[in-house]
Design a binder for these strands. Structure first.
Lengths: 248, 248
DNA sequence: TTCGACATTTGATCTCGATCAAATACAGTC
DNA sequence: GACTGTATTTGATCGAGATCAAATGTCGAA
C-alpha cells in the first residue's frame, strides 16, 4: 500500500490538523479553504449504523479515527463485508446519491465529512483532487483483489492469519512502528465481524484463533488484544509469498 | 454499471473509430490527437499471456475486442481470477511500472495500447481524463465488491447462475439488446477459467452447469453456447435481490 | 478416417468448515 | 458481590464442495 503512509504523513501536517489532507495532498491554501467551507465532523459509536444500503448520503468523508465497515447482506441474512475503512481512508462516492452497502461503525468513529454536491464541484475544478481520489481508489481496488484471493482460495487458518497480518501492518503504519519482530495491537472487530470479513462463521473464526494461539503463533490478552511474538511466523501462515505479494 | 453503456456509445462515435473514447469521453480533437500519437494496437491469441505478475508493463490499454483476465497465483498453484476485462474496459495503472497480476487473453484479444509514461503526462494536463478514469475505477471497485459477496457467501449453484447472468448482461449491452426474455450468448471462458473466477474447482463448475441444464434454467449448444429461456428464472438462482442489488 | 491432445462430464469418496447445541467468560449495572 | 445480557469458546455432527479417478466428447492434423 504505497500511498498509505504518504496519506498519513500528510495527515500529520501541521498546517492541516483537520486531516482532510488525506483527500487533498497538494492543495494550495485557497483550495483548503474551500474544503473547510464544506466540511464538518461527525462522531459515531461502535455498532452504530452510519448509512443503510439504498439510503441517500449527502456527504463523502475521510475517516479520522476508528474503523468503519461496508457490508452487503442477502435477503436470507448472509452477510459479507466488502470494505474496511481505517483512518485516512475515504468513504463515499462523489457522483452517487445513495450508498450501495451498509456502512457501520466497527469501533467509535470520527468522520471528517464534506458535503457531497459541492465536493463534486470542487473535484471538477481542482484537477489534482480527482488524481488523488484515483490513486486512493486504485489502492482500494488492489486491496479488494487481495481480498478476493483470500475469499476464493485460502483456508480458514490462512484467512485468519492474513487478516491479523493486514490489521497488524496497518496498525504499525498508523503508529509509525517499523521493522519490529514483535507486534502488539487491538482487534478492531468482533469475532462475528471478522467472520463477515473472511467469509467464515464466527465459530470457525474462534476455533482458528484458538488454534493459532495453541500453536504459539499469537498470544491473546483478553479477547481483543493480540501479541505476535514472531511476525515471520505469522506471515508463513498467510499463504502469501514472502514479500507479501507486493510488486514495486 | 451506469457508465458501461455510455462508454460503448462513445466507442461507436463516428469521429473516433479507434475506440479510445472509452477512456476519453469528452476529449477535444487536439487531445485526441495527443492520444493518437501515443497509441498502437496489439493482438493476442486466446490463452496467450499478455503480462506476468511482476513484469514491467510500459503501456496501459483499452480492450477493443475479446476478453482478458487478471489472475493471482499462490506458490502451491491455487489460482484466483481477480479481474475480467471486456470490450471498453481499461487495463493497467498509469502510475505503476509493473503489473501485480498475471494478465491473460481468455479469447482472442485486441488492445488499444497507450504508452504509459506519456499517457500519465496526459492525465496530469487533462483533468477530465483522470475524472473519467476515476469513474471507471469506481465501477470496477463496485464490481469487485459484488464479486467478494459471491466468493464469500454464495453456494456453488448461485455462483454459476451469477456468473452466467453477469456475462449475459454485459453481452446484451454490447449487442445493445434490451429487455429480451430469452438470451443467447457464448461463454468467453473455459470451465477451468470459470472455476478460477468463482473460487470453485472445474469439476464443481461442470456439475452445477449440468444441474442448471437438467433443471431447465439454461440450455447448452455445444460446450460454450448458452441459451437462457427465461432470464427471470436465472436471476432467481443468483441469490441477488430482484433489482440485481443496484441502487440508483 | 484415425489419431492425439484437450476440454468436459460423471462417479466415488473424503474433508473442511457449517450447523446445531451448550458451556464459559466478561462487562456493566443494580 | 450477585445478576444479566452479550461475546466467545468448545463440542458433536453433518453436508457441500474438494479430491481422486475414469469415461466421454470434440476438434484439428495427418
Amino acid at each position: 500500500m504505497p500511498n498509505r503512509s504518504l496519506a498519513l504523513s500528510e495527515m500529520a501536517c501541521a498546517d492541516c490538523p483537520i486531516r482532510h489532507r488525506a483527500v487533498c495532498a497538494r492543495c494550495e491554501s485557497d483550495e483548503l479553504e474551500k474544503l473547510d467551507a464544506i466540511k464538518y465532523y461527525r462522531r459515531f459509536e461502535a455498532g452504530q449504523t452510519i448509512a443503510w444500503a439504498g439510503d441517500k448520503m449527502d456527504f463523502v468523508a475521510s475517516v479520522v479515527e476508528g474503523v468503519a465497515s461496508l457490508t452487503q447482506t442477502m435477503e436470507d441474512g448472509r452477510r459479507q463485508m466488502v470494505g474496511l475503512l481505517l483512518p485516512s481512508d475515504f468513504l463515499g462516492r462523489p457522483n452517487r446519491e445513495s450508498v450501495s452497502y451498509d456502512v457501520t461503525a466497527a469501533t467509535d468513529v470520527m468522520l471528517c465529512c464534506f458535503r457531497r454536491v459541492p465536493f463534486q464541484g470542487l473535484i471538477e475544478e481542482t484537477p489534482h483532487l480527482s488524481q488523488r481520489l484515483l490513486e486512493m481508489t486504485l489502492d482500494e481496488l488492489d486491496a479488494a483483489r487481495e481480498w478476493m484471493l483470500l475469499l476464493g482460495r485460502k483456508t480458514a487458518r490462512e484467512k485468519i492469519a492474513s487478516f491479523l497480518s493486514i490489521i497488524a501492518r496497518r496498525d504499525a503504519s498508523l503508529k509509525n512502528a517499523k521493522n519490529a519482530t514483535e507486534l502488539a495491537f487491538d482487534l478492531p472487530l468482533t469475532r462475528e465481524a471478522m467472520a463477515d470479513y473472511l467469509g467464515l462463521t464466527l465459530e470457525t473464526v474462534s476455533r482458528q484463533m484458538s488454534a493459532l494461539k495453541r500453536d504459539g503463533v499469537i498470544e491473546l490478552k483478553g479477547k481483543r488484544h493480540i501479541i505476535v511474538p514472531d511476525v515471520e511466523a505469522l506471515m508463513d501462515e498467510t499463504g502469501d509469498d514472502a514479500d507479501g505479494g507486493v510488486y514495486i
